[in-house]
Structure formats: C-alpha cells, structure tokens
C-alpha cells in the first residue's frame, strides 16, 4: 500500500493544503526577507540586492536608541491596550450577560466597531481628535469642560493616549464577544452551589466565573496579538509616528525606513526583530491558554 493510502498518512494529507498556503505566503517570503536583511538592499537600486553586508544591519539597529525606543513603546502599547481591552470587554460581557430584554440587539450593537476597517478607524479618530475642527474638542468646549484647543495628536502623552483609544475602540468588541461566549458556556451548577454555600457576588466571580473565563480571555489575547500589527494602519494614518517620534512604533518605523528611505535591507532586519516580538507575545498567550485548559480539565 502506498504511503498516502495508509491511515497514518490521512492527517498529513488533510493538513497539506494549510501547510502549503502558509509556506507559500509566509515562510517563503520570510526566507527571502531574511536574506535581504543581510544585504544593503535599497529599493531603488535592484543591483544592491547582492550587496552582502553580514550582520551590519543588525549591529546598527541593535545599538541604536532610535530603534529601541520605538521597540519599548510597542511593547508598552501592546501591554496597555490588551489589558484595557480585556477589562472593558469583561465588563461589557458581564453586563450584557445579565440582560434579558433586548439582548440580541445589544449584542449586535456591541459588534458595531468590528465592522470598521482599521484604516477607517484611523481616519475617523484623526478627524475626531483634530485640535481645531475635531468633534472631541468642539464637544468639550461647548460643554464648557475645556477652554483651550487640546492638542490630542501632538502632545506626547495625549497622542499615545489617542492612538490607544482608537485601538481599544476597534478591538474591545472582540474580547467582549469571546468572553460573552464563555459566560454562555458556563455551567450553572457551580454557581448555584456557591450561592448555597453563602458566597457573595464578588467571591463567586473571583473563584468560579473568572477561572472559567480565563481560557476565553487567553484565546482573545492570542487572537489579538496575532492581529495586533493591524494597529499599523491606525497609527500611520493618525500620527505616522509623530510628532518628534513620540508615537513611533516598530511598524511605522519599518515602513518609513523601507519605503520612504528605500533602505529595505535595514527595514527587513527591523522587521525580523518585530516578528520575533509578535511571535513571543502569541506564544506567551498560547502557553497560558494551554495551562488554563489543563486547569479547567482538572477542575471538572
């Protein structure tokens, strides 16, 4: 019997299409960009593709604060937005879970921000946060809460805050919906038992609901960290890393170095470092998920 007719070959046959697409669209290009990260490749000079420079690009970026500062900012940004999205999503899910009348409508409204393309979210918040004609300042001024034009996208801290708001607005729904799904799946018995045992609402939540929800939370985190580079669209539209590099994150930096400055070799070296960062984030949440699943399995 040939290999492919054997029962043991079936899973590999089933997985072949998935592995082929991934190899074709991700692995193959990654090998190519790995090669270019060791060259002085400049977009406008095709011949420079063969200009081998060894580790020079890596040595340069790893010793350059102009790389490490955006790197740190990216990590900070991811940490802040993922946690805020989780907390807000949790709050929304808990609230909606308790509603009986009109829940379906609420769920649909809740998913409204998921319909927005990241690039659209960027334009939208750029417009809302415009210091002169933006609706945020206009509203604050007409409510009498502020008498000045707050430079949302220029002030260092506010600009970071503004792009974080845009990102949180776009992605909180994903957390909310996954956590809501978790709440729906939750067995009733432990809750009832806790009530009988005299646990108060907080204790029930802390010791029963939350542990049950954590796998859902880690799934959401993992999905979001797979996808978080989408924030590139938002940041590039809202501030493009400015002013004075105060909102520069890895992806905008890579875009500028690679395309505006044509230094693709250097940009790909940076891209490699950022790829490793993304992979670490995803891997971390995946481990957490596996651990949480085990915990759940053990508890049941």
């Amino acid at each position: 019997m040939p290999f492919w007719r054997r029962e043991s070959a079936t899973p590999f046959l089933l997985l072949t299409p998935a592995m082929l697409t991934m190899a074709f669209v991700v692995v193959f290009p990654l090998v190519f960009s790995m090669y270019t990260s060791f060259t002085g490749f400049r977009l406008t000079k095709p011949a420079s593709l063969y200009d081998w420079v060894g580790f020079r690009n890596y040595a340069r970026i790893l010793s350059d604060p102009e790389f490490w500062i955006p790197f740190g900012r990216t990590v900070l940004f991811l940490t802040v937005v993922l946690n805020v999205e989780f907390l807000l999503g949790l709050g929304i899910a808990l609230l909606i879970n308790r509603i009986t009348w009109g829940q379906r409508t609420l769920r649909t409204i809740m998913m409204f921000p998921m319909m927005f393309s990241p690039i659209l979210v960027g334009f939208m918040f750029k417009f809302l946060f415009n210091d002169n004609i933006g609706i945020v300042n206009n509203a604050l001024q007409s409510l009498g809460l502020s008498d000045g034009a707050i430079p949302w996208l220029v002030d260092g801290k506010l600009a970071f805050f503004s792009i974080a708001i845009a990102e949180v607005w776009m992605s909180t729904s994903v957390f909310a919906i996954l956590l809501l799904a978790g709440l729906f799946a939750m067995p009733r018995d432990p809750l009832e038992a806790a009530k009988v045992d005299g646990c108060n609402a907080w204790q029930t939540f802390r010791h029963i609901t939350l542990p049950f929800l954590m796998p859902f939370a880690y799934i959401a985190m993992a999905i979001r960290s797979l996808d978080v580079a989408r924030a590139y669209d938002i940041v590039t539209v809202m501030t493009d890393g400015g002013p004075a590099g105060r909102t520069e994150i890895l992806w905008t930096l890579i875009g500028r170095v690679g395309y505006d400055n044509s230094r693709m070799g250097m940009a790909n070296a940076m891209a490699y470092v950022s790829t490793i960062l993304s992979i670490l984030f995803t891997w971390y949440f995946y481990r957490k998920l596996v651990a949480a699943r085990r915990y759940m399995g053990g508890a049941q």
Partner: peptide, 14 residues
C-alpha cells in the same frame, strides 16, 4: 499560529 503572527509590513515587500 506563530506564522500568522508575522506582521504584514514585514511580509509586504517579499
């Protein structure tokens, strides 16, 4: 999963 985590900007030129 991990290959999915590669950011789009890193893939765009290759």
């Amino acid at each position: 999963m991990l290959f999915r985590a590669v950011p789009g900007i890193a893939l765009s030129l290759p």
